[in-house]
Design a protein around this nucleic acid. Structure first.
Length: 308
DNA sequence: AGGTGCCCCTGTCTGC
DNA sequence: TGCAGACAGGGGCACC
């Protein structure tokens, strides 16, 4: 599953291979892949026509491409749409993407055979011979077109305005995160997965960062001291940086790489997926516990549960 | 109204 | 062998 570092690799690939290009053909092959675009597939396709893609952005696991323009085909299509859905002068537009569990954005030669789970195809008004494909087996991900937050320098799509900055973002506010933790009446792993507090941390990185911090996943956030929060954030950044260092080497290829193939997951995990294997610190077998319809992996010796 | 938990989806794996 | 069920998981959203 693509985690934040993989999504960042995809962002770099998009920047390199599709930013600046102009859309001139859109094919939606599965309605679920554009379900966040509430006006439907025909509207999605019509409104993308003629748009020029700007620089790729990322927040947590969300990706987006601010767009400009809209050619004759887009204007024609827009005439039949209600005012809310026509291109706005005061608000920018952006194509939003989320890869979900199994999504891939691939830059492929136009004559390459369709992937089994090809959901959306975008072709461009140039002679580079490549197209952008959204491929997704489990269809948790998708593409959609949205207004951007007025005045936002990154052209943030309005529907993800509630998503917090991620810990690799220079503007992430460590002190504000700590204060938010202290105000919450919840437990630390829930907080790490709460996208309104901190984004981009999934189940895997949460378990890894907690293991490195010797923290049990059910520790109440209200007990966190400033140094403990700082240490935890440091470990979150470490595991993400390590994965980025490994997975970030392949974006230079034609394919926009994704799909959790970062070798990081095979070699460097200390807790996640290691049930019954010895803790790399103390040798105690790692345990797995059902948690929120998922699993939590932890060392029962290094990560003691909080008092009841 | 902050916190909790269900549900969407499909392919793989395990156990009976 | 075949089938049922567990599991993987982000995040929207209904509900208390």
């Amino acid at each position: 599953m693509p985690e934040l570092p993989e999504v960042e690799v995809v962002r770099r690939g998009l920047e390199r291979w599709v930013s600046g290009r102009t859309i001139d053909e859109v094919e939606v092959r599965h309605p679920r892949a554009i379900r966040r675009h509430t006006a439907g597939a025909a509207d999605f396709a019509a409104r993308l026509m003629g748009l020029q893609l700007g620089a790729a952005r990322r927040r947590g696991k969300y990706l987006w491409l601010p767009v400009t323009g809209g050619g004759p085909a887009a204007q024609t299509a827009a005439e039949g749409l209600p005012p809310m859905l026509t291109p706005s002068v005061t608000h920018g537009l952006a194509i939003l993407a989320h890869l979900g569990m199994s999504g891939q954005l691939l830059v492929q030669p136009q004559d390459a055979p369709d992937e089994k789970h090809l959901r959306i195809r975008l072709r461009f008004a140039d002679d580079l011979g490549t197209e952008l494909r959204f491929v997704d087996q489990r269809t948790f991900g998708g593409l959609s077109l949205h207004d951007t937050v007025p005045g936002d320098a990154d052209h943030l799509p309005d529907v993800i305005a509630h998503i917090a900055r991620d810990p690799l973002d220079d503007a992430f506010d460590d002190a504000a995160f700590h204060d938010a933790l202290r105000r919450r009446r919840t437990t630390i792993k829930r907080a790490l997965l709460d996208q309104t507090l901190i984004s981009g941390v999934g189940n895997i990185y949460a378990d890894e960062a907690l293991w490195r911090s010797k923290l049990h996943y059910e520790r109440p956030t209200a007990t966190f001291t400033r140094p403990r929060t700082a240490e935890l954030l440091g470990h979150v950044r470490e595991v993400m940086d390590a994965a980025l260092a490994v997975g970030g080497t392949s974006f230079d290829s034609l394919y926009v790489n994704v799909n959790g193939e970062s070798g990081y997951f095979d070699r460097s995990l200390d807790a996640y997926g290691r049930e019954d294997e010895p803790c790399r610190r103390c040798g105690t077998p790692i345990r797995r516990r059902p948690w929120m319809n998922r699993s939590s992996y932890f060392c029962p010796r290094c990560q003691r549960p909080p008092r009841a």
